[in-house]
């Protein structure tokens, strides 16, 4: 038995804030529909239900961006939506390394090319 003196203080489900999980509809105090309101007062574009502030701290770019665009064109109940996103993440990391160290990328690329040529030559001698 717990020595905790507070044991059972929330034993009554009525004291638990998440019971029931889904409450009767009720707006939170002070909550208003500000989704359509820009800071500069301009109206949100026609048909644009979400302003540009929603999401995209890092806009998609490069090959990974194209993969992400392709992924988001596929509904998320398909596994390929997720697989493409995971692939895009790995490509993004490679792209970022190339951007940060282009010299290293050239050396790595040249090394890979030479390695491939050497392998092909070795296989050709068999």
């Amino acid at each position: 038995m717990s020595p905790d003196p507070a044991r059972g203080i929330d034993q009554d489900p009525a004291r638990r804030p998440g019971v029931p999980a889904e409450k009767p509809p009720h707006s939170q105090p002070h909550a208003r529909n500000v989704a359509q309101m820009r800071q500069d007062g301009r109206p949100t574009g026609v048909g644009e239900t979400r302003t540009p502030v929603f999401g995209t701290a890092q806009p998609p770019r490069g090959l990974s961006g194209r993969l992400r665009a392709a992924a988001y064109a596929i509904p998320e109940h398909y596994a390929r939506h997720w697989m493409l996103l995971i692939l895009a993440d790995r490509v993004d990391v490679l792209e970022s390394r190339v951007r940060r160290r282009p010299g290293m990328a050239v050396v790595a690329g040249a090394g890979a090319l030479l390695g491939t040529l050497a392998l092909a030559r070795a296989l050709g001698r068999r």
């Binding site: 998440g18 999980a21 409450k23 509809p25 939170q28 208003r32 989704a35 998320e76």
Partner: peptide, 22 residues
């Protein structure tokens, strides 16, 4: 957002307005 279908029912983790990606 505090005012969508889910937020009004206390399910703020399911807010319908704050994640356009999913």
């Amino acid at each position: 957002c505090g005012s969508c279908f889910y937020c009004e029912r206390g399910l703020t983790a399911n807010c319908d307005r704050t994640n356009p990606n999913s």
